[in-house]
């Protein structure tokens, strides 16, 4: 067995129940997302029964307002929503980390310009800015992905800059500069290896935020558009059923909450493991 597998197994054995719960949720969701077309009993947009059938009848989670199988759509939703959220987080990370590191190692001047710019972007409530830009550019998935990625990259920028600076002021970095090393070498060899742990934790937290944000936009009808299955828009579409005492809209909403709790639990455990959190 590879040593890395051995050590991860060992780590798993020491994991507290909460972390196990988180890992289980994440595994199930990822599995559902990847294999949705093979597991799902019906097609993503197939109308298969009467509208508004309740939970636990012929259909596991009932049917939605036009008679599509909710269970099927939840599986596809895992693929669409989580996939898009991961993409957005990855983009936000790329932008935020690159600029954050530039800010951390560059001259005071560059840092000031970048930081003030980010300050202003962060002073605007993200939902409002997103609404504004979506009005101009029109509501499409691509626009939403770009808007959230840019908005969220500001938080990644702040964190990367802060942890990057904490490392950049240390003597081993000063020494590398004095040795005559280039900026890229310093970032790659001296700074990045020392900030991977907080960045990894931040990736988890940012994913949660992005995921909730996309769900909220979709719920408002401004994010992922029908008929694509997506957890946020599923809540919106089926919301009228609740007044008939049918709990269907709660299913996708609970899925959203479960995944977010799961990722949060994993991040907590990771922070504890890497000594960044004491309790």
């Amino acid at each position: 067995m590879l040593p890395i597998m051995q050590s991860s197994l060992k780590l798993l054995k020491t994991a507290p129940p909460t972390a196990f719960l988180g890992l289980t949720i994440l595994t199930v969701v990822l599995f559902a997302g990847v294999f949705a077309p093979w597991i799902a009993p019906y097609g993503e947009t197939d109308v298969v029964g009467a509208p508004g059938l309740s939970i636990g009848g012929d259909f596991l989670f009932g049917t939605d307002q036009i008679g599509r199988d909710v269970f099927t759509r939840i599986l596809y939703g895992a693929r669409n929503t989580v996939g898009i959220a991961l993409l957005v987080t990855a983009m936000a990370f790329f932008i935020g980390v690159v600029f954050g590191l530039i800010s951390a190692v560059s001259s005071r001047w560059v840092d000031q310009v970048l930081s003030r710019l980010v300050d202003i972007l962060m002073a605007i409530p993200p939902l409002i800015l997103a609404l504004l830009i979506l009005t101009i550019a029109g509501t499409s998935v691509l626009n939403m992905v770009l808007v959230i990625a840019v908005l969220d990259s500001t938080r990644v920028f702040r964190l990367t800059r802060a942890v990057g600076m904490n490392v950049a002021v240390l003597e081993f970095v000063e020494l590398a500069r004095l040795r005559g090393e280039g900026t890229w070498w310093i970032v790659r060899h001296e700074i990045l290896p020392n900030i991977t742990a907080p960045l990894a934790a931040e990736f988890g937290l940012r994913f949660c935020f992005v995921f909730l944000f996309i769900s909220a936009l979709s719920f408002l009808g401004l994010g992922i558009q029908p008929p694509t299955a997506d957890w946020g828009s599923m809540v919106r579409e089926t919301s009228t059923l609740i007044s008939f005492g049918i709990a269907t809209p709660l299913v996708p909403a609970i899925c959203i909450a479960l995944l977010t709790v799961g990722v949060n639990l994993i991040v907590d455990w990771f922070l504890y493991q890497s000594g960044m959190r004491k309790e």
């Binding site: 909730l212 909220a216 719920f219 809209p249 909403a253 959203i256 909450a257 977010t260």
Partner: peptide, 29 residues
């Protein structure tokens, strides 16, 4: 608190509606 932060606002809203206005009928939805 962790669960509350992780939940989208509409989950809490619909659970409250489901319980307090639909099932119990105490408050308007």
């Amino acid at each position: 608190a962790l669960s509350a932060i992780s939940s989208p606002e509409f989950l809490a809203a619909y659970i409250l509606i489901f319980v307090f206005s639909i099932q119990l009928g105490w408050l308007p939805s």
